[in-house]
């Protein structure tokens, strides 16, 4: 099976006068159905790697293929469109837009892609929220639901465009033990049911152990 994301010898250097190399020749493939944990200590380069995989940042060197397409020559607009349609994100903090209801937050990636609300969009978003157990909270604002519910809404939002890969940066880092377990279980269910690949950045060993594959970054290198 050809990988959805293929990283070949990726490096990332910050700064112009004083250069700091954060990633050193990372090569990694993510295929459909993968459930991958990226672990490492703070400052090891996990988030930088996730940003590059998520097309939120560009590598200094190396090759990043998304569904076999080389992203190096793509302009900002094309990268944005590719990111919106192929990748989903779950962050440590839910980052739901407080001005929007839970339902509208889930509709947001669809509206951004189509340019406006289209028929069926609202129902599709409601269906996703039902799936994550928030079918009764559609009209609630993010500050009207619990932390665990917000993170589940963020997962529904990540699923909105039916992405091939969801990149999750410490998705349970801000939750209590119960909510954390619920959220992780939900991610696993989605992975099993839809075949959606997950790349989960975590420094929690128990979370990493439950993943199918673990890669560890030490000082910007995969070990």
């Amino acid at each position: 099976m050809s990988p959805i994301l293929s990283l070949a010898d990726i490096t990332k250097t910050y700064g112009t006068r004083i250069k700091t190399q954060v990633l050193h020749g990372i090569s990694l493939d993510v295929a459909r159905g993968d459930f991958l944990a990226v672990t490492g200590q703070s400052g090891s380069g996990k988030t930088t790697l996730l940003n590059i995989m998520g097309l939120l940042d560009r590598p200094t060197d190396g090759k990043l293929l998304v569904n076999g397409i080389d992203t190096a020559a793509m302009d900002d607009e094309s990268i944005t469109a590719l990111r919106g349609r192929t990748l989903g994100f779950v962050f440590q903090f839910h980052h739901l837009l407080p001005a929007l209801t839970i339902l509208e937050n889930v509709m947001m990636p669809m509206m951004a892609d189509k340019g406006s609300e289209t028929p069926g969009m609202r129902d599709a978003a409601a269906e996703l929220l039902k799936r994550v157990g928030l079918g009764e909270r559609l009209k609630y604002k993010p500050d009207e639901v619990s932390g665990g519910q917000r993170q589940r809404a963020a997962i529904a939002r990540a699923l909105a465009m039916r992405p091939a890969v969801i990149l999750a940066d410490e998705p349970t880092g801000n939750l209590d033990t119960n909510s954390s377990a619920e959220v992780f279980t939900l991610l696993r269910e989605i992975n099993k049911a839809d075949g959606t690949a997950f790349v989960i950045v975590t420094h929690a060993a128990d979370i990493a152990r439950q993943c199918d594959r673990i890669v560890e970054i030490v000082d910007g290198r995969l070990v």
């Binding site: 939120l56 607009e77 944005t80 469109a81 919106g84 994100f89 980052h95 837009l97 947001m108 951004a112």
Partner: peptide
């Protein structure tokens, strides 16, 4: 800033 970043991450173009 964070909200704008999220919209951008989820496919909102700069022009939008």
């Amino acid at each position: 800033r964070a909200e704008i970043g999220i919209m951008r991450a989820f496919g909102a173009k700069r022009s939008v």
